[in-house]
């Protein structure tokens, strides 16, 4: 079984995001970029499948900021190959462009599954699994929380909301947007990542950035504070007293 995992970087949402001078993109100069957390779930699921059933895991993605770190992390965790598609693209990359770049590379690769994260925090023009699935002409499914080989194909479980899940049998190859892996993404010690770095091993492929139709962002802005919370300060003892008072005033809970 050969599993391709499509990964990418995303602005770290823990940090404050600022809008750049154009007014239509985040200021990419000062923000930290990290691996998309749902892609990490996709990688974990791929590694678990490989451990249980054998096969090969190939991690691939467009050369985003600090993407090497994500690729070395994936190699340290057990991926067999790591591929970086370099195209010199700068700024916000629409999903349609990312899907086109990946599709062009995938046409020369045989695979059973392409796994990627269910979403990314800036996929304004749609989630990758569906767009890539359509571009490759393959069945696809998103919000996937379960995946098992089953006869000639795979059993795929998706979440439908409200805790209801749907299990289907699909014949591959498939493109799946992973919501959660069967276990939390594994931790890999920094020493193993360093080993992967010194061993090298990232395959770099030059690609052209294709043109694709995507919405034109005219303005990026912080949401208007509508029902902004009344702030209680940040001194724990005072805040705690106020919270207890507020809960008691509701006549609920506190004895």
């Amino acid at each position: 079984m050969k599993i391709v995992v499509a990964m990418r970087q995303i602005a770290d949402l823990v940090e404050e995001l600022e809008v750049d001078a154009s007014g239509a993109d985040i200021d990419r100069e000062f923000v930290k970029f990290v691996s998309n957390e749902w892609d990490e779930a996709a990688l974990e699921e791929a590694l678990c499948l490989k451990e249980a059933h054998g096969g090969e895991v190939v991690v691939v993605g467009v050369d985003d900021v600090d993407f090497d770190q994500t690729l070395f992390g994936a190699l340290a965790k057990g991926a067999d190959r790591a591929v970086k598609l370099s195209c010199g693209f700068e700024g916000w990359m629409p999903t349609a462009v990312r899907a086109e770049i990946l599709a062009r590379w995938l046409k020369d690769e045989a695979f059973d599954l392409v796994l990627t994260g269910v979403q990314a925090a800036d996929d304004l023009d749609g989630q990758l699994a569906g767009v890539l699935g359509a571009r490759l002409g393959l069945p696809h499914a998103a919000v996937v929380v379960g995946l098992e080989p089953d006869g000639e194909g795979f059993k795929v479980t998706q979440e439908l909301g409200g805790g209801v899940t749907l299990t289907s049998h699909a014949t591959g190859p498939l493109v799946l947007g992973i919501q959660a892996a069967r276990q939390a993404p594994r931790y890999v010690p920094i020493s193993r990542i360093r080993q992967a770095m010194s061993a090298g091993g990232i395959e770099e492929v030059e690609v052209e950035a294709p043109a694709a139709r995507a919405p034109r962002v005219t303005r990026l802005f912080a949401p208007e504070a509508k029902g902004r919370a009344e702030m209680l300060g940040d001194k724990p003892s005072e805040v705690a007293a106020r919270i207890v008072e507020l809960i008691r005033a509701k006549g609920a809970g506190v004895s």
């Binding site: 602005a11 304004l124 303005r219």
Partner: peptide
């Protein structure tokens, strides 16, 4: 960005 920014 998880609701931190809006894009027109």
């Amino acid at each position: 960005y998880g609701g931190k920014l809006m894009a027109e």
